[in-house]
């Protein structure tokens, strides 16, 4: 066991993936000498060389487009998009090319490309550095979309994403990069497409992913003091969703609140609410509620605490779900 931050756990996971397979490459802006602006790739270029850890020109579409070409040649590129709000110049290559090429080739081509995206707010950043663009990608068939929430998962999930023969969009909760946990090197994790019961609960189920898992766990601990047993599910995989885990939990509690930083409208919470309603209809005591960002662009950082779901907003929703 070693105590690692989430960023360091990703670093160790990448290192293990590169050790295991010489075809694994890391590419992106500032990922080499600097080790990435969050230091997730720190030291990798020194150990694996400039051919495998590539400082790219400053162009996101170019990063993904050339990664596709490298994958066609048998490589497994792990691309870093420096910040969530910078992914859109690459959206065409991700959505139109990367996601669809395996099907277009009738399965003859595989595109094992990982697109790492630090996501979410809470770090006092300037605009375009705090967004949650996951739904743009969960809506695209052909992509797998995952989000890690803690160092233990970060370590195994990044390795599983690299091993996966499908393109994976990998969201990293940037405000949790410095959270620490004990990580066991070499230990396998849950399969990449599985959700995790982060906390058992009997009265209500919170469903979250990425940065909101920790917030939900804090809310659950606070609710316990009020005598409510609140469970938390960490989705981990956003496409596909691991609905059996969600369904089992909600069938037990009869109440469900979905929490994410992304805007509620047309967010992943809507999809989960619909599926929970379809699959748990006779067990539900209340409608599925959603807590998330507002239908505004991400606000200036002095307002972000009001925009982001926090413990109080989650507990307020928990109160409401008991009001039916």
């Amino acid at each position: 066991m070693t105590t690692l931050t989430l960023a360091k756990a990703l670093n160790e996971g990448l290192r293990a993936a590169m050790d295991a397979d010489s075809k694994v490459l890391v590419m992106g802006e500032d990922v080499g000498k600097l080790g990435g602006v969050f230091r997730v790739t720190d030291g990798l270029q020194k150990d694996f060389g400039e051919d495998r850890v590539i400082d790219t020109p400053l162009a996101e579409s170019g990063i993904i487009g050339t990664a596709i070409g490298l994958a066609l040649r048998g490589y497994r590129p792990v691309c870093e998009i420096q910040f969530d709000g910078f992914v859109f110049p690459a959206a065409d290559q991700i959505i139109t090319q990367l996601a669809k090429m395996p099907l277009r080739s009738l399965g003859k081509l595989k595109l094992p490309v990982v697109v790492r995206i630090p996501c979410g707010g809470g770090i006092g950043a300037v605009e375009h550095h705090s967004e949650s663009p996951e739904t743009y990608f969960t809506h695209t068939a052909g992509l797998r979309v995952v989000a890690c929430s803690n160092p233990v998962d970060a370590y195994t999930m990044i390795q599983d994403a690299v091993r996966c023969d499908d393109p994976v969009v990998f969201f990293e909760p940037k405000r949790r990069y410095w959270d620490k946990a004990d990580v066991e090197f070499g230990a396998p994790g849950l399969p990449l497409d599985r959700a995790r019961v982060a906390r058992e609960g009997d009265d209500v189920t919170l469903v979250a992913y990425g940065p909101m898992v920790k917030t939900c766990l804090e809310a659950a601990a606070a609710a316990e003091e009020d005598g409510r047993s609140v469970g938390v599910i960490d989705l981990r995989s956003l496409n596909p969703l691991d609905m059996p885990v969600v369904r089992d939990a909600v069938n037990r509690t009869g109440r469900c609140v979905v929490v994410h930083e992304a805007p509620v409208f047309n967010g992943l919470g809507g999809e989960i609410a619909a599926r929970v309603t379809e699959q748990c209809f006779y067990r539900l005591e209340a409608p599925v509620l959603r807590v998330g960002g507002f239908s505004t662009p991400y606000p200036p950082s002095r307002l972000e605490d009001h925009y982001l779901p926090d413990l109080d907003r989650i507990l307020e929703a928990v109160d409401r779900v008991f009001g039916y």
């Binding site: 066609l72 290559q93 090319q97």
Partner: peptide, 21 residues
Amino acid sequence: HLYTIVIGSQTLHAVGYAMGI
């Protein structure tokens, strides 16, 4: 390679492939 309909996208694929070469 497969035909590419969206204009110009394949130029990046070709360069990435060349980097693989």
